[in-house]
Amino acid sequence: MSRIQGSLVRKAALAGLTAFCFSSMAFAQTAAPATGLGQSWPNATDVSASPNWHVYVFVLNGIKYIQVNDLNGTVHAAVGTASGTSIVLPVGVDAQNVVTPAANAPASTSSSAVSTETVYQDSATTVTATPQTSGATQFNVMSIKSCPTASCSGNGGA
């Protein structure tokens, strides 16, 4: 009889350990923060508003970091935003072509509002991409404070 009880105890312990392992793995998958700012394929969800871009969002200490990659994974630009203020991060091949409300726009090499598209938008920030004739892309970052009207939608005001 003790042999049967020992077998049941081992089976119960094994079942408990298995359940613990599976719950730990599930918790790790849901609780793990997005990581990989500056990487081609970060461990974050693609939240792009455009099928032509990948956009990843990271949040740390109340600051939202928005990274824009092309479809090949090349990092083009990244910005940090908090309380309606945006800063350009020195990340990506187009970092010098990012315009924020506080920054002066770089000299544009003939862009067209028709080709401007919204690549990211949330309740506080909109990021648009405009191809330049030089082959670069200009990214405009607008906050609700800097752009309170529908004209900031990135579709030429339509």
Rank of each mutant, 00 (worst) to 15 (best):
K11R: 12
S24F: 02
G38H: 12
L14N: 14
A26F: 09
F20M: 08
A32H: 05
P33M: 00
Q39L: 10
F22Q: 08
S40P: 05
A15D: 13
K11D: 06
P33V: 04
A19K: 04
A19I: 11
A19V: 09
A34D: 13
T18V: 00
A12P: 00
A32W: 09
Q39A: 06
T35S: 03
F20W: 12
P33G: 00
S40E: 15
G16V: 11
T30Q: 07
P33F: 01
K11H: 09
T35M: 04
A13L: 03
F27P: 00
T35A: 03
F22V: 07
A19E: 09
Q39E: 08
C21E: 14
Q39D: 15
A13G: 01
K11F: 02
S24R: 03
T30E: 11
C21K: 04
Q39G: 04
A12C: 06
L17Q: 10
C21H: 08
A31V: 02
A26Q: 15
L37A: 10
L37W: 01
A12S: 13
A12M: 02
T30Y: 09
A19S: 06
A28H: 11
F27W: 15
C21Y: 06
F20P: 03
A28S: 11
L14E: 15
A26N: 12
L14I: 14
T30W: 08
A31R: 05
A15L: 05
G38L: 02
T35Y: 03
T30F: 03
F20C: 01
A12Y: 08
G36I: 11
F27L: 13
F27I: 14
M25R: 11
F20G: 01
S40N: 14
S24L: 01
A31G: 05
A19F: 04
G16S: 12
S40Y: 05
A13K: 02
L37T: 10
S24Y: 05
S40G: 14
S24K: 05
A28V: 07
A31H: 15
F22C: 04
L17S: 07
A31K: 06
K11V: 06
S23G: 02
Q29H: 00
A34R: 05
L37E: 14
A19D: 10
L14S: 12
Q29V: 07
M25V: 09
G38F: 02
A31D: 08
A34M: 07
T30V: 10
F20K: 02
L14R: 11
G16C: 12
A26T: 15
T30A: 03
A12V: 11
S24W: 04
K11A: 06
L37C: 07
G16T: 15
